[in-house]
Amino acid sequence: MIELLTGLLGHAVLSGSVLALAALGEVIAERSGVTNLGVEGLMSLGAVVAVMTVAAIPHPWVGLLMAGLVGGLGAGVLALASVVLRANQVLCGVAVTFLGLGLSATIGRPVAGMPVPVIFEPVSVPMLSSIPVIGPAVFAQNILVYFIYLLLPLIVHFWLFRTRYGLDLRAVGENPAAADAVGVPVTKLRVMAVMIGGILAGFAGADLTLAVVPVWSDGMIAGRGWIAVALVIFAGYRPVWAVASGLLFGLVTAIGFMGQARGWPVAPAVLNTLPYLGTIGCIIVPILAFPRLRRAMAAPAALATPYHRTGR
C-alpha cells in the first residue's frame, strides 16, 4: 500500500511539473491582460529545441536555456501581433500554437525518436528523502521539480503581489487606461509578461523531454498546453494555486491509471476522463459552496482586451 501511494504521488509530482510550469507562465501573461493561447505550440518548440540542443551540447542546463529562449522568442511574435499591433488575442494565440507545432515537427525531424543523450537525473535530498511515502515521491525527483514546486511559485507570487513591478503588471491587466494615466508603460509590461510566460512554456517543453519522457516525437505535447491554459482559470490566476492545480491534475491522472491497473470496477473510458471531470468539479463546487469566491477567482478585468490609448 505504501509503495502504491509513493508511486502515485511520485508520478503526480513528475507529470504535474510540466503543467505547473506552463500554467505559471500563463498566469503571468494573463495577469497582464493577455491571453496566450500559444502555450501548446511554445511547449512543443521548447521540447524539440531542448532535445536538439543536448544532442549537440550534451548538457541539460544548456538545453533548458535554449528552450526558454526559443519559447520567449515565440511568445515575442505573439506579443508583437497581439499587444503591439493589437490583433485579436485568441486568433494570434491559436496561430502561434499551429506555428509552433508545425515548426517543431519540421525542425525536429533529424532528432525524432532518438534517445536524449543527457537528462536531468533524480537528485535525492538528504534526510528528507527518507521520510516514508513523501520522501521518495517528492524528495527524490530531478532538480527541476524542486525549482518548479518550491522556488518558482514563491518568486512569482512575491513578484506579483509584494513588489511595485507586480502591482504595475496587475494594474495593466485590470485597467490599462488607469495604469497608463499614472505613467505605467502598458505595452512594455504586457510584452514582457507574455515573453516571460513564453520562456516558462519553453521550459515546460524542455521539462517534458529532458526529465519526464526523454525522447522527442511530433505531437508529444498531446494537448497539455491547452490544459495548462485551463488550469490558470481553475487556479483563479494565482501562481501558487496554478502550481498546486498542476499537481492535482497530475495526481488525478495518476489515480486514473492506477484504477485501471488495479482493476477498479469502473470503465477505462470513465477513468481516463477523471482529470477533466475533476477539473470541472473543482471549479464548480467551490464556487457553488462559497459564492464570494466567484469574485476572488475572477479573471483580470482587461483580459483579452487589446489596449488602445486613443480609445480611452
Binding site: 507529470s15 519522457v213 516525437s217 498531446a222 497539455r224 491522472t253 495518476a254 491509471f257 491497473a261
Partner: peptide, 11 residues
C-alpha cells in the same frame, strides 16, 4: 502519447 504511456507503465 509518450507521457501517458509512461505513467500507465508505472501504474
Amino acid at each position: 502519447d509518450p507521457q501517458a504511456a509512461t505513467e500507465a507503465g508505472s501504474a
